[in-house]
Simulated assay, not measured.
Amino acid sequence: MPKSKASLKARYASDKVGVVGTVAVDAGDFRLLASATDTTFVGGPSLNGLSLSVEKPGSFVIDYDVPKQDVLFQFMNTVRVLDKPLNLIYTHDKGVNQTALNGTLVLDPANKLSANYMFDSGDCKLKYTYMHRAKSTFEPSYDIAQNSWDFTVSQRLSDEDILRASYQTSSRVLGLEWSRNSMLNGTLKISASVNLAEKQKEPKFCAESSWNFDM
């Protein structure tokens, strides 16, 4: 008998409130998903915010945005380079005609190199990930098109709690995020960000919580 799971995610931001619900059904090697947002039910049932997906974990994902009639294809594969695994993800968004290739070379459990290339614009981003003693993670990334650096540092406070800080040099946005997993079979995330380039420098806050259910 196929296994079904459902999830509900609620997000409150300074400028927007949103809810997303997802139902996933395992059908052998494949997984069928349907997701809807709060706009699907405002003013009566509609197709707004509704998307349907079929995926084979580790191989491909086909996502169909019903109201926009937009299809997104994503293919995954892993190859060996100098006896190191290189994880590749090829993504094509038919609606906006965008194609991207993302590759992550796993040097060892503590070190990874990643690259993301956009075929339409030629933009390329590089990222290096270093994990120290499975608790601290450092992720500098470089945007070749904008000639700018981004920095992310995260610290695992406990088995459930992670604190993350980030800074984007191009936009001068400083961010701080705290997340907790496995809370009531779900997650809780609270974040704040401030644009240091603005005169007011008013922080923006966001709270996000999700719950998972077996059906």
Rank of each mutant, 00 (worst) to 15 (best):
M1R: 13
S7F: 04
S7K: 09
L8P: 10
L8K: 06
A10Y: 14
Y12S: 09
A13K: 11
D15R: 05
D15Q: 08
V17F: 12
V19W: 01
V19K: 00
V20T: 14
T22C: 05
A27C: 11
R31N: 07
L33A: 01
A36P: 05
T39Q: 13
T40P: 01
F41K: 12
F41W: 13
V42I: 11
G43N: 14
P45E: 02
S46M: 06
N48S: 15
G49Y: 07
L52I: 08
K56H: 05
G58A: 05
D63Q: 06
D63T: 02
P67N: 11
Q69T: 14
Q69W: 06
D70Q: 09
V71Q: 02
F75K: 05
M76C: 01
N77C: 02
N77A: 06
N77K: 06
V81I: 11
L82D: 06
L82N: 07
L88G: 00
Y90N: 05
T91P: 01
T91M: 03
D93R: 08
D93M: 02
K94Q: 13
N97M: 11
Q98P: 01
L105M: 01
V106R: 02
L107N: 00
N111E: 02
S114W: 03
A115V: 12
Y117H: 08
D120M: 10
D120G: 04
D120E: 15
S121T: 15
G122F: 03
K125D: 06
Y130A: 10
S136L: 15
E139L: 11
P140G: 09
D143Q: 08
A145W: 05
S148C: 10
W149H: 12
W149T: 13
T152G: 09
S154F: 06
R156V: 13
D161R: 08
L163W: 09
A165V: 15
Y167E: 08
Q168A: 15
T169H: 12
T169E: 11
S170C: 08
S171C: 04
L176A: 13
L176W: 04
W178M: 14
S179R: 11
T187S: 15
T187D: 14
L188Q: 12
K189Q: 15
N195V: 03
E198H: 08
E198P: 04
K199S: 15
K201H: 10
K201C: 14
K204P: 02
E208W: 03
S209F: 13
S209E: 10
W211T: 09
F213N: 09
F213T: 08
D214R: 10
D214V: 09
M215V: 14
